[in-house]
Write a protein that binds this DNA or RNA. Structure first.
Length: 535
RNA sequence: GGGCCUGUAGCUCAGUCAGGUAGAGCGUCGGACUUUUAAUCCGAUGGUCGCGGGUUCGAACCCCGUCAGGCCCGCCA
């Protein structure tokens, strides 16, 4: 059974209506790693609906969390905002400086700044969750009940956290973090409490009070999380392995939620995504690939497949090079399979059957629109990558595909893919081994590897090339006529051509590529190769 | 110190929950298509299932131990 269906089954045992939560702190650029959180949630919701349950996906925006430090992409001016809540400080402008104008005019804040592009990407990917901005939840008093219970009995909370996480809390610990005289959550000590007010003194010696019903502060993370499970009625939540470890915030959350008077959501712990060869993704170090950036390279279905096809507890190494090619081709293969026919085969073993079923579910989950059936574009990514490099215009490329009988007519899906392919090819992510490059100087090593028969082709070919029209047909005729004259098989001719022009043993069809190159440059290269043979 | 995850073919991983003769894709090699879109099609190659014990008629799978890698027990998806 597919992992999403396993969770759906668990949810079915729990009840008929579900709210599946995801939550992210908008402290910096969103990246592919965050996509796993939200896509995992989305796929659980779809699986639950498939199982006949009512399911809604929500996205808790943790904009009540404080700015922890001045990240590399921020101006030093952000020093004054450390400890302040992301939803109440100005967003950085293009230079990383606080954009006061927009903040004061229309309340454009730090959290919004990073959230919006992510939501845009999510839309393209087919995920449109209900947003729950956490800061507003505090300000609207939704946290009041839980905050009151915690503040009324801090020792009970302390006991749970210390026992479950086996860490000691400082004497001064209090289950509410008030905002200080400068609006920061840092460097403050609680001096007293009488509902709804928490009394405090900050590091500047200023004293004040914080009303827990109005969001003049927040619950520490380990309480904040279980509290919002309650008033948001969360029944299921996928979260990263960092929260899932024994003694982690989910473990304490389960008991704290019970203390608050509600049940913890059904958990699903997922592994992190790292960038191939560069370790974990992190917004703060800038080691990221953003969802928008990824969408410029591949269609959304393929990003969805990455998540759908990996079990949550499996670490994913995101590879924007060959890994992406393989992933995309995997998608094409899946899309062209006939699962109904495969499943109708009675001779399948239990394992084989499971494999086919899971592949089908993974493909279904990859659809941006859950109502749509996957359709194969009939052209593999690998193949398209070649064509896109050899055909300068889309018309030429489609024409060539139609001529070869690969497709009957151009489709929107294919054109969309081609557009992304072209942007991928020009990006830094495109793998070198896929890049077609014509040599500028002869590759001596390759030339030396040629057999005598092959070497004999070089000079006649260089001469013939000069005489033909510089068209694909003309160049092709130069190849075949030269081979015919010397009574050499075409196979040998191609081997020679690739050595001369690309320094390789094999390659893509050469004539269409050469015709797009400068005639004189190619002739010069051919002559240089011929000169090499001479010596 | 305590805990979690991972370890299966050259590579990426299924298969472990319900024990029953080791799977897929990619790669590699060979063949076909006889002017090749590194295309497509066909075939072959390939694994002491990290290691050692135990349970069992039977273990990649269950149990115990052990090694290696990653991670968590402030914050982080």
């Amino acid at each position: 059974m597919h992992w999403s269906d396993v969770i759906a089954q668990r949810l079915a045992e729990r009840g008929d209506e579900h709210i599946i939560a995801t939550g992210i702190t908008p402290s910096g650029e969103f990246h592919i790693g965050h996509l796993r959180e939200i896509l995992t949630g989305d796929m659980i919701a779809r699986a639950a609906r498939k199982a006949g349950l009512k399911a809604e996906l929500v996205f808790v925006v943790d904009n009540a969390d404080p700015l922890r430090k001045v990240y590399p992409f921020l101006d030093d001016a952000y020093h004054e905002f450390i400890g302040m809540q992301l939803g109440s400080i100005p967003a950085p402008d293009e230079h990383g400086k606080p954009d006061w104008a927009r903040f004061e005019q229309d309340g454009w804040n730090y959290g919004d700044h990073f959230l919006l592009p992510f939501l845009e990407a999510l839309k393209q990917i087919g995920v449109q969750p209900r947003l729950i901005p956490n800061l507003e939840s505090y300000q609207n008093g939704f946290f009041t009940n839980s905050a009151k219970r915690a503040c009324d009995d801090p020792e009970a909370i302390r006991e749970i956290i210390e026992r479950v996480s086996s860490r000691e809390l400082p004497e001064t610990w209090f289950p509410w973090q008030p905002l200080n005289s400068k609006g920061s959550l840092d460097g403050i000590s609680v001096t007293g409490y009488e509902f709804p007010l928490v009394y405090w003194k900050d590091e500047y010696g200023v004293e004040g009070q914080s009303d827990i019903t109005k969001g003049e502060g927040k619950l520490p993370w380990r309480l904040d999380w279980p509290a919002k499970w309650g008033f948001n009625k969360i029944t299921c939540e996928p979260f990263g392995k960092d929260h899932g470890a024994a003694g982690g915030s989910y473990a304490t959350g389960v008991e704290i939620a019970a203390f608050f008077g509600h049940e913890a959501p059904t958990p699903l712990v997922y592994e992190w995504i790292s960038l191939r060869g560069q370790g974990a993704m992190s917004s703060s170090t800038g080691n990221t690939v953003g969802p928008i950036e990824a969408l410029q390279l591949v269609p959304p279905e393929i990003l969805r497949l990455l998540i759908a096809n990996s079990k949550p507890n499996k670490a994913i190494e995101f590879d924007t090079g060959m890994g992406l090619v393989n992933l995309a081709d995997e998608y094409e293969r899946l899309a062209s399979r006939d699962f109904e026919a495969e499943l109708a085969d009675d001779s399948l073993s239990r394992r084989q059957r499971v494999q086919v079923e899971d592949a089908k579910v993974a493909l279904d989950l990859s659809m941006v629109d859950p109502e749509h059936q996957a359709q194969s574009t009939a052209v593999s990514f690998r193949h398209l990558a070649l064509l896109a490099q050899t055909k300068p215009t889309d018309e030429a490329l489609m024409g060539s595909l139609i001529d070869s009988g690969t497709i009957h007519a151009s489709t929107a899906a294919l054109e969309d893919r081609l557009q992304r392919m072209r942007s991928w090819i020009t990006s830094q992510h495109f793998p070198e081994e896929m890049r077609i490059s014509i040599l500028s100087h002869p590759n001596v090593e390759s030339m030396n590897e040629l057999t005598q028969d092959q070497r004999n082709l070089v000079q006649p070919l260089a001469a013939t090339l000069k005489a033909v029209d510089w068209t694909a047909e003309g160049i092709t005729s130069a190849f075949s006529n030269t081979a015919k004259e010397l009574e050499t098989p075409m196979r040998e001719m191609y081997r020679t051509l690739y050595a001369m022009f690309m320094g390789t043993v094999r390659g893509p069809r050469l004539a269409p590529i050469l015709v797009n190159c400068e005639r004189d440059v190619i002739l010069e290269l051919a002559d240089a190769c011929a000169a090499l043979i001479d010596n």
